[in-house]
Amino acid sequence: MDHVRIEATERTPEVYFDFNGHYFSLRGEAYPEDTNAFFGPLMNQLEDYFQTLDEATITFEFELIYFNSSTAKVLMMLFELLDATAARNNAVKVHWIYEADDDNMEVLGEEYGEDLEHVDFSLVPKEA
């Protein structure tokens, strides 16, 4: 398996995981009907893959328009996973992309970013 691509729906984000290219992204809306059913398998794949990395450089981009509270919990787990991966001799870059006038999405990004000790985290405002 070298990549995962899931098209966006009205309530689930576009998922693109390029394992060989070390590039990962989630874009769009995230309030799935069943959060665990949607994110569970994806989280497992990431966990398994990150385990194998050593001295790797990976980039993870988030460009979310809206996410509900159960997705917020999945994102927290994902950030903890990324931080643990970065702590083990890997370089992890995270770009949190948000619409420039969306203060709430900026704050949510800041709140995830401030807990990370090893990840290179940046907030990226995007003009509409």
Binding site: T35, N68, S69, S70, A72, K73, M76, E80, E111, D115
Partner: peptide
């Protein structure tokens, strides 16, 4: 909010247990 996101969901909760805080 952050503590709840990091902790386990309260018993009997099917979501993150964080909805009302949100």
């Amino acid at each position: 909010y952050k503590q709840t996101l990091k902790g386990k969901s309260p018993e009997g909760s099917k979501g993150a247990g964080v909805g009302f805080i949100d």
